Amino acid sequence: MSETNVVKQTKHAPYYLVREDILPEALLKTLQIKESIARGEFATVGEAAEKVGLSRSAYYKYKDGIFPLNLLERERIVTVSIDLEHRSGVLSRVLGLVAAFEGNVLTIHQTIPLQGLANVVLSVETNAADTLNPLMEALRAEDGVKRAAIIGQG
Protein backbone atom coordinates (compact mmCIF):
# COMPACT_ATOMS: atom_id res chain seq x y z
CA MET A 1 0.00 0.00 0.00
CA SER A 2 1.48 3.37 -0.98
CA GLU A 3 1.91 6.23 1.48
CA THR A 4 -0.69 8.25 -0.43
CA ASN A 5 -3.28 5.51 0.11
CA VAL A 6 -2.51 5.37 3.82
CA VAL A 7 -3.05 9.13 4.19
CA LYS A 8 -6.33 9.00 2.29
CA GLN A 9 -7.62 6.07 4.34
CA THR A 10 -6.73 7.58 7.72
CA LYS A 11 -7.96 11.12 7.04
CA HIS A 12 -11.52 10.23 8.09
CA ALA A 13 -10.82 6.90 9.71
CA PRO A 14 -13.36 5.43 12.15
CA TYR A 15 -12.69 5.36 15.88
CA TYR A 16 -12.74 2.25 18.04
CA LEU A 17 -13.13 1.82 21.78
CA VAL A 18 -10.45 -0.58 23.00
CA ARG A 19 -9.67 -1.77 26.55
CA GLU A 20 -6.34 -0.53 27.85
CA ASP A 21 -5.05 -4.00 28.74
CA ILE A 22 -5.04 -5.13 25.09
CA LEU A 23 -3.31 -2.06 23.65
CA PRO A 24 0.25 -2.51 22.38
CA GLU A 25 2.94 -1.16 24.68
CA ALA A 26 3.96 1.54 22.17
CA LEU A 27 0.46 3.06 22.26
CA LEU A 28 0.36 3.04 26.06
CA LYS A 29 3.78 4.70 26.22
CA THR A 30 2.65 7.30 23.69
CA LEU A 31 -0.23 8.20 26.02
CA GLN A 32 2.20 8.37 28.97
CA ILE A 33 4.39 10.81 27.05
CA LYS A 34 1.46 13.00 26.02
CA GLU A 35 0.13 13.13 29.57
CA SER A 36 3.53 13.85 31.16
CA ILE A 37 4.21 16.69 28.70
CA ALA A 38 0.72 18.13 29.33
CA ARG A 39 1.45 18.09 33.08
CA GLY A 40 4.74 19.93 32.47
CA GLU A 41 6.94 17.12 33.74
CA PHE A 42 9.16 17.28 30.65
CA ALA A 43 10.17 20.16 28.40
CA THR A 44 10.71 18.03 25.29
CA VAL A 45 9.32 14.91 23.67
CA GLY A 46 12.84 13.48 23.63
CA GLU A 47 13.16 13.69 27.42
CA ALA A 48 9.75 12.10 27.98
CA ALA A 49 10.35 9.37 25.38
CA GLU A 50 13.66 8.46 26.97
CA LYS A 51 12.05 8.27 30.42
CA VAL A 52 9.25 5.89 29.34
CA GLY A 53 11.44 3.88 26.96
CA LEU A 54 9.90 4.70 23.58
CA SER A 55 11.62 6.04 20.49
CA ARG A 56 10.74 9.55 19.37
CA SER A 57 9.79 8.21 15.93
CA ALA A 58 7.28 5.77 17.47
CA TYR A 59 5.81 8.60 19.54
CA TYR A 60 5.35 10.80 16.46
CA LYS A 61 3.87 7.87 14.54
CA TYR A 62 1.10 7.34 17.13
CA LYS A 63 0.57 10.70 18.89
CA ASP A 64 -2.19 11.97 16.58
CA GLY A 65 -4.10 8.70 16.65
CA ILE A 66 -4.57 7.91 20.32
CA PHE A 67 -6.42 9.91 22.96
CA PRO A 68 -7.84 9.17 26.38
CA LEU A 69 -11.59 8.62 26.03
CA ASN A 70 -12.40 11.40 28.51
CA LEU A 71 -10.70 13.97 26.24
CA LEU A 72 -12.68 12.88 23.20
CA GLU A 73 -15.93 13.16 25.15
CA ARG A 74 -15.23 16.62 26.53
CA GLU A 75 -13.70 18.60 23.71
CA ARG A 76 -15.50 19.74 20.60
CA ILE A 77 -14.51 22.40 18.10
CA VAL A 78 -17.17 24.56 16.47
CA THR A 79 -16.77 27.25 13.84
CA VAL A 80 -19.00 30.27 14.33
CA SER A 81 -19.62 33.05 11.81
CA ILE A 82 -20.70 36.37 13.30
CA ASP A 83 -21.61 39.68 11.64
CA LEU A 84 -20.65 42.56 13.92
CA GLU A 85 -21.38 46.26 13.79
CA HIS A 86 -18.21 48.26 13.33
CA ARG A 87 -18.17 49.81 16.80
CA SER A 88 -15.58 49.86 19.54
CA GLY A 89 -15.84 46.98 22.03
CA VAL A 90 -18.23 44.71 20.13
CA LEU A 91 -15.65 42.02 19.34
CA SER A 92 -14.28 42.26 22.87
CA ARG A 93 -17.73 41.58 24.35
CA VAL A 94 -18.22 38.63 21.98
CA LEU A 95 -14.91 37.11 23.10
CA GLY A 96 -15.93 37.71 26.71
CA LEU A 97 -19.16 35.77 26.12
CA VAL A 98 -17.24 32.85 24.65
CA ALA A 99 -15.02 32.81 27.74
CA ALA A 100 -18.02 33.13 30.07
CA PHE A 101 -19.47 29.96 28.52
CA GLU A 102 -16.12 28.21 29.07
CA GLY A 103 -15.18 28.29 25.40
CA ASN A 104 -11.60 28.57 24.26
CA VAL A 105 -11.00 30.63 21.11
CA LEU A 106 -8.56 28.79 18.85
CA THR A 107 -8.62 31.09 15.81
CA ILE A 108 -10.11 34.44 14.84
CA HIS A 109 -10.54 35.74 11.31
CA GLN A 110 -12.10 39.16 10.77
CA THR A 111 -12.88 40.84 7.47
CA ILE A 112 -12.46 44.54 6.87
CA PRO A 113 -15.71 46.33 7.79
CA LEU A 114 -17.91 47.16 4.80
CA GLN A 115 -21.00 49.32 5.16
CA GLY A 116 -20.58 49.28 8.93
CA LEU A 117 -20.42 45.48 9.32
CA ALA A 118 -17.50 43.07 9.70
CA ASN A 119 -17.66 39.30 9.55
CA VAL A 120 -15.76 37.40 12.21
CA VAL A 121 -15.20 33.65 12.04
CA LEU A 122 -14.19 32.01 15.32
CA SER A 123 -12.98 28.47 15.90
CA VAL A 124 -14.04 27.69 19.45
CA GLU A 125 -13.24 24.67 21.57
CA THR A 126 -16.14 23.87 23.87
CA ASN A 127 -15.95 21.50 26.82
CA ALA A 128 -19.62 20.60 27.05
CA ALA A 129 -22.25 20.12 24.38
CA ASP A 130 -24.92 21.66 26.58
CA THR A 131 -23.20 25.10 26.55
CA LEU A 132 -23.30 25.54 22.78
CA ASN A 133 -26.99 26.52 22.42
CA PRO A 134 -26.94 28.98 25.35
CA LEU A 135 -23.73 30.52 23.97
CA MET A 136 -25.30 31.00 20.55
CA GLU A 137 -28.41 32.56 22.10
CA ALA A 138 -26.25 34.95 24.14
CA LEU A 139 -24.22 35.90 21.05
CA ARG A 140 -27.37 36.63 19.04
CA ALA A 141 -28.73 38.80 21.87
CA GLU A 142 -25.49 40.78 22.30
CA ASP A 143 -25.63 44.48 21.33
CA GLY A 144 -23.77 44.96 18.07
CA VAL A 145 -24.17 41.38 16.83
CA LYS A 146 -26.31 41.28 13.70
CA ARG A 147 -26.02 37.55 12.97
CA ALA A 148 -24.39 34.52 14.61
CA ALA A 149 -24.44 31.02 13.12
CA ILE A 150 -22.58 27.76 13.51
CA ILE A 151 -20.96 26.92 10.18
CA GLY A 152 -19.00 23.83 11.23
CA GLN A 153 -18.57 21.29 14.00
CA GLY A 154 -15.86 18.78 14.65
Rank of each mutant, 00 (worst) to 15 (best):
E47S: 03
T107C: 04
D83Y: 05
A43F: 00
E50W: 01
A43W: 07
V98C: 10
Y16M: 14
R93Q: 01
R56I: 01
D130S: 02
P134S: 12
A148K: 00
H109D: 10
Y15L: 14
G152S: 11
L28M: 14
S36V: 01
T10A: 02
L117I: 11
V94S: 06
A43L: 02
V124E: 05
Y59G: 00
L106G: 09
L122Y: 03
L71M: 09
G65D: 07
V105S: 03
E137L: 10
K29Y: 02
Y15P: 06
G154C: 04
E85K: 04
N127M: 08
I108L: 15
L139D: 11
L106T: 09
E137M: 11
E50G: 03
A49M: 02
K11R: 07
I112T: 08
T107F: 07
L28K: 15
G89H: 04
L71K: 09
G96C: 09
G144N: 00
Y15A: 13
L72P: 04
V98K: 09
A128F: 02
T131V: 14
V6K: 15
K63V: 05
E125R: 09
V45D: 03
R74I: 03
L132C: 05
V18M: 13
I66W: 08
A128S: 13
Q32Y: 05
S88T: 12
A138I: 09
L31I: 02
S81R: 04
L132H: 08
Q9C: 05
M1S: 13
T111V: 11
V98Y: 13
I112N: 03
A99P: 10
L72M: 14
T4A: 14
V80C: 02
L132F: 10
G103Y: 13
L72E: 10
R87W: 13
G65E: 01
T30N: 09
A26Y: 10
L54N: 01
L95Q: 12
L135E: 05
L114A: 15
E142V: 05
L71H: 10
D83K: 10
